[in-house]
Design a protein around this nucleic acid. Sequence first.
DNA 1: GAAGCCCATAAAATCGATTTTAATAATAAC
DNA 2: GTTATTATTAAAATCGATTTTATGGGCTTC
Lengths: 225, 225
Amino acid sequence: MTKPKPVERALAPGVSETAASQVFDELKRDLIRGRFAAGEKLAISALKAQYAVGLSPLREALNRLAAYGLLEQHNQRGFRVPPLSAEELEDIARLRVQLECMALTQAFQEGDAEWESQLLAAQHRLLRADKSPEQLEKWEQAHLQFHRTLLAPCGSHWLLRFIEQLHDQFDRYRRLAPGNPAIRARLDAQHGELVQLALERRIQDARWLLEEHIRLSWDVARGAC
Amino acid sequence: MTKPKPVERALAPGVSETAASQVFDELKRDLIRGRFAAGEKLAISALKAQYAVGLSPLREALNRLAAYGLLEQHNQRGFRVPPLSAEELEDIARLRVQLECMALTQAFQEGDAEWESQLLAAQHRLLRADKSPEQLEKWEQAHLQFHRTLLAPCGSHWLLRFIEQLHDQFDRYRRLAPGNPAIRARLDAQHGELVQLALERRIQDARWLLEEHIRLSWDVARGAC
DNA sequence: GAAGCCCATAAAATCGATTTTAATAATAAC
DNA sequence: GTTATTATTAAAATCGATTTTATGGGCTTC
């Protein structure tokens, strides 16, 4: 007999990715990273080549991104990168303060020892992550994960979902804006302070600090508009 | 000059719909209406026939709905109607209270005379809408529009977006639950009271009433799980 | 000279068919 | 009798081609 079974059962037995999901992840990252200009119209056939994927999975990914708010979809005239505006950034930042402080309060009440451990771990990974341009994606991932961990035990699935969505939107601005080393240093320090306040469950101080943290990031992100 | 000659765009002025957008709207309505059982796996080929649409636009609509949270998407195993649970309903309801009260406060500050007019109009349309089973969709539309109008001037695009999303989620429960005439009557009365408080800008009373309104709806919606 | 019209072109949207994967039934092994 | 393995079937995902719609240029008309 021949070998009609060269088809390895995909070493990962559980979750196999689809082309649509892969290109969704890549496009999402590239949109947040600022690979495309704000307001730019996406040329679908070009994307097809760039991401080495067929038309169907690509369109499905674009549809998901539009529903998520990282693209604008206009019937019969394709997809467009949303414009950046100082007004929208203000909206996003203010709402981040409200929602994240809300989640923080809950997280402080619900968080247990395991949470404290994971928070310390996440902070350490962030601290050690290399922020050089080549490793920037790694740092961004660690940063996102830190903020996720901080609020994770809040108990509200939908609140966390909205916060994540706003975070992605905010990062479009922040990552496009020129860096500010002085502010960046202060922001980095605040992560450690947040952990300390979390361990001590000093909710009011933590809320003030988190608000300050977001407002400082906002100061940086403003540079994008 | 003074030639108010709006360029006639083809035979369909304004926005021509795509098949994907149409089936998205229909599916969204049917999901909220409870046409499919919670937890049910959607048979794509069956939907294709039911909605009289091709595979591509149908899949695009399903992808959008999954990103919106009205469907679950599992790689390589299709789409599924999210299950209903008392815990998630609680999450949704509590968050509605928080977010809508937040928006209400802003709306009371930003709303002008034009807003007051539209609010009165929306309330009257709701009052007059027929709630009979045949006309139920009309009433639901008027109800949604009333709540939209109430919060519209709040100034935060993203807050309104999240509130609408939660409202859709909440309605899945409410519309599946058996009706309660006594509570329904009280809820209907509250719409008028909210308008009155809005006209007088009695923010604190209005916040209490809106919270009470959502909690009462919640009492009804609980009947779905 | 500007506005309207028509055609050519490019892009978006959709269709029909194919490929890939998961779910299920049937069979074999222990 | 149970578990493991293979074959079968059904469904999801993807591809390639076609249809539909928007866009831009050149022409005509007033």
